[in-house]
Amino acid sequence: MGLNMIVAVKWVPNTQIVNIDPTTGTLIREGIPSIVNPHDLNAVELALRLKEKYGGTVTAISMAPPAARAGLEFIMGMGVDRAILITDKVFAGADTLATSYTLAKAIEKLKPYDLLIFGHETIDSSTAHIGAQVASWLKIPYIYYVIDTEYRDGYIFAKRRLEKKIEIYKLPIPCLIAVAMRSNEPRPIKLEYKLRVKLENPLEVWTNNELQLSRACIGLRGSPTRVEKAVPTPTIPRKKMKYEGQDVKEAVKWLVDKLLEEGLKII
């Protein structure tokens, strides 16, 4: 039987770059490639592990511009069976509501599914809303911070890591889990899978022709979120203190003392 799983992945700008033009003060974005949201790779990894354990299929979906094809090909290289790119100009400008609605509607078309696996949050917007919202649209249970999962007697047993304990939840299928960041380290790309992607070009592209969603619920029009005002975070003036000694241990002690002076509390 196995588990039919759907993994949601987002195509995000690689925000690990901080190249600022001194004249304009803006971020230099030229030639900065996008990547699969790193936390979503943990979700893909968990899905693949579950597939190895219980059988079934892993389908990846992403709502993104056409360039995200490269990202979906990347995770197919990890071993995902099927990938669907949801792309259409009418989906552009979506806030979390419109994004989750579109994803939920796409997922409905992929029925029957047993388990939806999401990343915890994205590196470019990091609301961590999408998983919960998708589950709400689909009226299925969901749980976050999952580090591992078992599948027994038609139930998902989701292991959840909190600060000081590990909880195990029993969820009926279908359900949604969001995978804890840094758990389930992603596996490397495999020649066999990447080659298959290149030879068979298996990526599916869905536009709103396939989904037939009302324009009022998607894209910019379906996005009630308005950014009223962006308040820059206050910059804390640098104190420019420097430890002049050589000893590493002393340096650490010095640093901690300084931080304590600034009001840091050790608990």
Binding site: G77, I189, K190, L191, K194, L195, K198
Partner: peptide
């Protein structure tokens, strides 16, 4: 150059 090779029919497998 890789794109030219691809257009000529070569398969380019990256990330491997």
């Amino acid at each position: 150059m890789a794109q030219k090779a691809e257009e000529a029919g070569a398969i380019i497998v990256t990330d491997v």
